[in-house]
Design a protein around this nucleic acid. Sequence first.
DNA 1: AAAATGCTCAACCGCTAACCA
DNA 2: CTGGTTAGCGGTTGAGCATTT
Length: 292
Amino acid sequence: MGRAPCCAKVGLHKGPWTTKEDALLTKYVQAHGEGQWKSLPKKAGLLRCGKSCRLRWMNYLRPDIKRGNITQEEDDLIIRLHSLLGNKWSLIAGRLPGRTDNEIKNYWNTHLLKKLQRNEQTSEHDNEDQQRKTKKNNNVGGNKKKKNNNNKQKKNDKKKGKSKINDDEEEDKIQVYLPKAIRIKALTLPRTDSGSFTFESNSSSESQQKQGNEQVTNNNVVCEVGEIGENDRFGFCSDDHDLVNDIECESFFDTGNNRGTLERLYDEYFQLLNVDGICNFEFDSFAESIFN
DNA sequence: AAAATGCTCAACCGCTAACCA
DNA sequence: CTGGTTAGCGGTTGAGCATTT
């Protein structure tokens, strides 16, 4: 496959955008619309590659971008959608109006992952206690989730135990149990609005095993006891709650009377991802709901 | 006050699916 | 059908700022 020449090869600007560049790009897109990114820089008088222009517009300049902190509701939805979709940032962002995939990705990596790691430690510790109460040789080493090897994870690990007060407070409020984000292996979507797309559920043995350990009832995920600490769930719990030994995830998928829009959106995804025995199918309405 | 360390997030990189001639 | 082009995605980087030592 061909590759567009990178910025360096053609002597184009890189790095942070100036206000002048922003203005030029904004002006051009407002006049001519999005698209044609390859030829846009030249037409707009920018010394940037099309890729860079597209990214700048999509992630920063677009008028419908929502600025400011992620709300608690958004935070919750991100966690839920990630549990279903994995690192499908664009899909997740598509359900959060005004938020970009880049923003969601950054938020996940900087905020939510920290919670996850913190909870993993708690979960592992409590799991060990649980195991002691049960059979000695019940489990083998596979219980412990592998540590993420990337540098930022290591940095974050170092900071554990002395994190910001705000983070601690936030974590105290959140109790989340997540399946590992591996449910989807391949998701093929057209890049045009052709109206339909195929969806492939994860058919790997790993996934099947995982799904075998979950029961889906009324949109609640119920994790079986034996799976505690086995990558299928992690709670964001305060230390003074004995939630690690809880089995059901109902607090997370609570279906109260006043369910908000985001709750319903989540349910849509959840139901679609749990259609019995369907590996390839079309659901145009779902596509429309996402992309329109 | 200065240096070291950590955090955030905009931007870049590399890859691939979709499109088209 | 083939191969080039383009758009879009997810992972990673690094500058700048904040916090800690």
